[in-house]
């Protein structure tokens, strides 16, 4: 089963995403901050990580950059969740190595379809 790491400090959104992904048949590791995300990513080696940009402590962009820098996690698929529409956030996310990004508020349906698109693209 494909494992997906979901990192968001907002429990409601974490639950929402987790619920929707589990419905789609994915195994979800929910974490509530960047540090935990980093630890779980290294420990469990998920196929894909959904990272919220603004989290206390390590931000999603920091985590993304660190995962990319670590050979063990460099190939992980990463989708950023951002509440900001500023271009610099999006650009920052991409320059840190994210594969895609979704702007809040997002549709859970759209998020799942983006994740599935990414997964199928890598499998192919």
């Amino acid at each position: 089963m494909t494992v997906v790491l979901v990192a968001d400090d907002d429990a409601d959104i974490r639950d929402l995403v987790s619920f929707k992904l589990e419905q789609a048949g994915l195994e979800v590791i929910p974490v509530e901050d960047g540090q935990a995300a980093l630890e779980q990513a290294r420990a469990r080696q998920p196929t894909l990580a959904v990272l919220d940009v603004s989290m206390p402590g390590l931000s999603g962009i920091d985590v993304c950059r660190m995962l990319r820098a670590d050979p063990a996690t460099a190939g992980m698929l990463i989708i950023m969740l951002t509440a900001r529409v500023q271009e610099q956030d999006v650009e920052g996310g991409f320059s840190a190595g994210a594969d895609d990004y979704v702007t809040k508020p997002f549709s859970p349906r759209e998020l799942v379809s983006r994740i599935q698109a990414l997964l199928s693209r890598t499998r192919a």
């Binding site: 907002d10 409601d12 959104i13 929402l16 995403v17 619920f19 929707k20 603004s54 509440a83 900001r84 809040k104 508020p105 997002f106 549709s107 859970p108 349906r109």
Partner: peptide, 16 residues
């Protein structure tokens, strides 16, 4: 930013 996060929950759960 602060409005978007609750809106995400509201619209997300509504969609569900």
């Amino acid at each position: 930013h602060e409005l978007r996060t609750p809106l995400t929950s509201i619209s997300g759960y509504l969609e569900l």
